[in-house]
């Protein structure tokens, strides 16, 4: 009951935020020096031609009216044409978002169990060498920008010491037909998000291992393995779930530099290309897409946080 209301309220807040975000994204394009018609036609365009294109693009309409037209197109999936390729933006997005989702999904599926295991293992070896090494390793990895990690991986596994994987994605065939290109971008993203989940899991496990019910289970003579897997880990995963959600949302920003580095044809690389080409319709659509994804995953993390927290679940919040 309370949960349904909570999810409903968060959804409403998310929708309002996305509405304001759309105002911001649209408003930013109004600040663009020179107008979009000139951007399409180039500097040498004749005034007549400019006037025609301006009318086509409704650039002479008042801003609120243009916003409404843009927003209703956005909602109905008509995202306009790229000012560079003249192709519909929606086609560009369709292929790219699939690729990005594939990248993020694999990274999440690898990073989550890996860091849960590493975090628990580290907690079980509290204050031993393995624990300190994990703490320092995750701290160092968490400091490094993604592109630094990515370039290091390329140097070690692609161009320099070993030549196991291709350094960049070939543009001539779909990503799924060259699965080996996924390895290094996925590894980079995993190394970006795993440290946080690992550290959170370690901290939570330490707390759980020190709690009364774990002591009780041990006193009852339950085998240590069973204490660990049936009592400790399930209770530790709850608080960690929210951090996992936040890290998945973080991937949405992480893909920008990583996709650019590996020439991976996804949303992130699309954004960089749109910025360089000043392709505003494409940029607006891609940024709205990322913001929607980001808000949605944050919302899910919120809900998961509530679901796994009995005090919140029973409706105090």
């Amino acid at each position: 009951m309370a949960l349904g209301r909570l999810v409903g309220r968060r959804l409403a807040v998310g929708t309002v935020i996305l509405f304001v975000v759309s105002l911001l994204v649209f408003g930013a394009s109004l600040l663009l020096p020179g107008d979009a018609a000139r951007a399409v036609l180039g500097r040498s365009a004749s005034p007549d031609r400019l006037a025609v294109v301006r009318a086509q693009m409704h650039l002479d309409d008042p801003a609120p009216q243009r916003y409404l037209a843009w927003a209703s197109d956005l909602v109905t999936g008509d995202l306009g044409n790229s000012t560079v390729s003249q192709e519909p933006v929606i086609e560009l997005i369709a292929g790219r978002s699939g690729n990005s989702l594939l990248l993020m999904a694999i990274a999440a599926l690898v990073a989550t169990p890996l860091s849960l295991l590493l975090g628990s293992w580290s907690a079980l070896r509290r204050d031993q060498l393995a624990d300190h090494a994990t703490a320092l390793g995750t701290l160092v990895l968490a400091s490094l920008p993604e592109f630094v990690v990515g370039i290091a991986l390329i140097y070690v596994f692609a161009t320099g010491l070993l030549q196991w994987f291709p350094p960049v994605v070939s543009t001539t065939m779909p990503v799924l037909e060259q699965p080996s290109v996924l390895v290094l971008p996925v590894a980079t993203l995993v190394l970006a998000v795993a440290p946080y989940i690992t550290r959170m899991m370690r901290a939570t496990m330490l707390e759980v291992l020190d709690s009364d019910f774990v002591h009780q289970a041990r006193l009852n003579g339950i085998p240590e393995r069973s204490v660990l897997w049936r009592h400790a880990v399930p209770n530790a995963i709850g608080p960690v779930a929210q951090v996992i959600g936040l890290q998945l949302a973080y991937l949405a920003g992480g893909i920008v530099l990583v996709e650019f580095l590996f020439a991976y044809p996804g949303i992130g690389q699309g954004i960089v290309e749109a910025v360089n080409a000043r392709d505003i319709p494409t940029l607006q659509a891609l940024i709205m897409l990322i913001a929607a994804f980001y808000v949605l995953v944050n919302l899910l993390a919120d809900v998961v946080g509530v679901l796994t927290n009995p005090r919140l679940r029973t409706g105090v919040a």
């Binding site: 935020i17 996305l18 975000v21 920008v256 910025v275 505003i280 990322i290």
Partner: peptide
């Protein structure tokens, strides 16, 4: 702040770098 938190930092930076030189 909630609105500005709806973007990853790099995406927000790219939006404004596309608009302003």
């Amino acid at each position: 702040t909630d609105v500005f938190l709806a973007f990853p930092a790099i995406v927000l930076a790219l939006l404004f770098l596309a608009i302003f030189q």
